[in-house]
């Protein structure tokens, strides 16, 4: 490891919020990024169902991150959703995302773009919709 990469790793470790992060299982499914973590859950406690609109509650750690974009695609089909979700801030590190719909069963990828410290990171999660 070079001095530069070691310094980078040390800084990343300092920034890693895992120990201080308040995300819990109640926040939903968790996606771990390099320096960010998010948890998402279907609003109202429902389950994902093909052909039904749904909204998400998204919580980020650290809470000063900004959720910039939410989208979903079917990588094998090379298409995304037919709807453009809207992000509504609910408080520090917490958002409501409306207008999502998976119009087909199959393999989807949920994508969340978060920005913090001048850097945008895309967190992805595979979702297999029966």
């Amino acid at each position: 490891m070079t001095r530069r990469s070691a310094l980078g790793a040390a800084l990343a470790a300092l920034a890693l919020p895992a120990a201080a992060c308040p995300l819990t299982a109640a926040d939903g499914a968790r996606i771990d990024g390099e320096v960010l973590q998010v948890a998402w859950a279907v609003e109202g406690g429902g389950t994902l169902e093909a052909g039904r609109h749904f909204a998400l509650r998204v919580r980020a750690c650290p809470a000063d991150a900004e959720l910039r974009r939410v989208d979903a695609t079917m990588p094998a089909h090379r298409h995304g959703m037919n709807y453009r979700p809207q992000i509504e801030p609910l408080g520090p590190g917490l958002w409501r995302v409306q207008g999502l719909m998976f119009h087909m069963s199959g393999a989807w990828e949920l994508q969340l773009d978060l920005r913090r410290g001048g850097r945008t990171q895309t967190l992805r999660q595979a979702i297999d919709l029966p």
């Binding site: 609109h53 959703m81 709807y83 453009r84 979700p85 809207q86 207008g99 719909m101």
Partner: peptide
């Protein structure tokens, strides 16, 4: 909801 969020692609 569908009308509000439909995307033109």
């Amino acid at each position: 909801v569908a009308t509000r969020f439909v995307a033109l692609q």
